[in-house]
Every structure is written in C-alpha cells, then in structure tokens.
Simulated assay, not measured.
Amino acid sequence: MTEQNFRAMRRAMVESQLRTNDVNDPEIIEAILAEPRENYLPPERRDAAYIDRAVPLIAGRALNPPLATARLIAAAAPRAGERVLLIGSATGYAAALLARLGCDVVAVEEEASLAAHAKAQLADWAGITLVTGPLAQGAKKDGPYDILFVDGAVEELGDTLIDQLKVDGRAVFARADRGVTRLCVGTRTAGGFGARAFVDSEAVPLPGFAKPKSFTF
C-alpha cells in the first residue's frame, strides 16, 4: 500500500464516514486529512486504518473507530490554546489531531507498549505531554484542563477525572450501558457535572471504568 493509496483512503473516509455524520468543521476535517492514521497501527493492520470499525492493537485494546473520535472532537469544540486531558491515548492518534487543532495535550495511557508507540510516533510534536499511568487517575498535576477527552467507552466517569476539569470545562466520552455505547458531552459547573448523550456509536471499551457491582441476596 503506497502513501498515495492511504491519502485516497483518508479522503474517502472523510467524505463517506465523517461528512455524512455531522463532522463538517473545516479545521477538524483539515486535521484529519493531514494526519496519517495508518502510522498509529501495527504494520500488519495498516490496511484497515480507514474502515468504520475499531482496529485491534494489543492487550485487548483497539484504536477507536475514526467516526467516534471525530464526533467526540466535534462535540468538544476545541479551541487553539486550550488544555486537554486525553484519556486512552493508545498509540497517539487522537493526541495528534488535538495538537493539530492548536491544543496543549496531556495524553494518558496505561498500557506500556501502546505508550511507547505513541512516544515514538509523537516525538517531534510540541504541545503533547505523554503520561504513563492508570487511565482512571488522569494527570492531576498537569491540570486543571479546559477539556476532558476520553477516546473510548466507560461505564462510569468518576469524580477523579471530572475534578481535573476547570469550572465550565467540557468533557466528551462514550458511555457503555448494557451493550450499547453512546457518545456524550458534558460541562462541569460550580454546582457539579452533567452530561447528555448525542448519538449511539461504536466505541472501544477502556479499562478501569467499570461500575461497582451492586450487592444482591
């Protein structure tokens, strides 16, 4: 597969998957067209870079479907200069897109081999800080943040991450509920945090966000 082939596939993905599903912001489209998603996959899986499904990586993890990541970015409406806490950075694709949009990104990944791939891939990027550690803990010392961006699905988004947002900060994530995942957007206010689902979408599950099991007799 040549670079020209990948560029054509990237353009086709934008036209057939993203623009037809409310991802039309010119800056977001430009960032996606400029960033080679295939570089964030193992060589044997690069041909699948632009399919509308999650692509397996290692250790049970996968790269989020391109539509899910793009719609979360669109919902977050990032502005240049904003500080983003990215949870589940995997091999670094979403971090690169957010950096292309002018954000200062702190990207958290707990799987060491994925974090190593991201470090190598993003070595020349300014404005991206990579943190290896539990996803659910975030990166409090580098906060607070304007945006909490969870690039995957969680059963429960805990206060540990919400508390790292500024007041009026935005959060985007996918909520997993009985086999269905819904993309959500929310805002932290002085009185708490509220979020709403805006579309059902496939999204990859992230470790460490399961709801506590309720006790039954």
Rank of each mutant, 00 (worst) to 15 (best):
C103F: 06
D52G: 11
P56G: 05
G88Y: 07
A107H: 01
L41A: 02
A112H: 11
C103A: 15
E110V: 09
W125L: 14
L135I: 03
R79F: 07
L63V: 10
E44H: 11
I87Y: 04
Q121C: 11
R83G: 03
A76G: 07
N39V: 01
A75L: 05
P134T: 07
R61L: 10
V106H: 14
E82K: 06
G60S: 08
A75W: 02
I128E: 00
G92D: 11
R83E: 06
P56A: 13
A74S: 15
L122T: 12
A80D: 13
P66L: 05
A99R: 15
A96N: 05
E44A: 10
D104Q: 13
A59H: 12
R71N: 02
R83N: 13
P78Q: 11
N64F: 00
R83W: 02
P56Q: 08
E109T: 07
T91S: 08
N39C: 08
R79T: 11
C103T: 12
R79I: 07
G127C: 10
A70F: 09
A116F: 08
G60H: 09
A95T: 12
E110C: 15
I128S: 01
V105K: 09
T132L: 14
A80R: 15
E44T: 09
E109S: 07
A118M: 08
L86M: 06
A116H: 12
A116K: 13
L67G: 05
A99P: 06
A76W: 04
A95K: 09
A75G: 09
A76L: 03
A94Y: 06
V131F: 04
I128P: 01
I58T: 14
L135W: 04
T91H: 00
A96T: 02
P65A: 08
R100K: 14
N64H: 02
G92K: 08
Y40L: 04
P78A: 10
A112L: 13
R79C: 12
P43I: 04
A68P: 02
A90T: 06
G102L: 04
G133C: 12
A59I: 00
L57T: 01
L122I: 13
A70N: 10
L98D: 09
R46V: 01
V131C: 10
A107G: 04
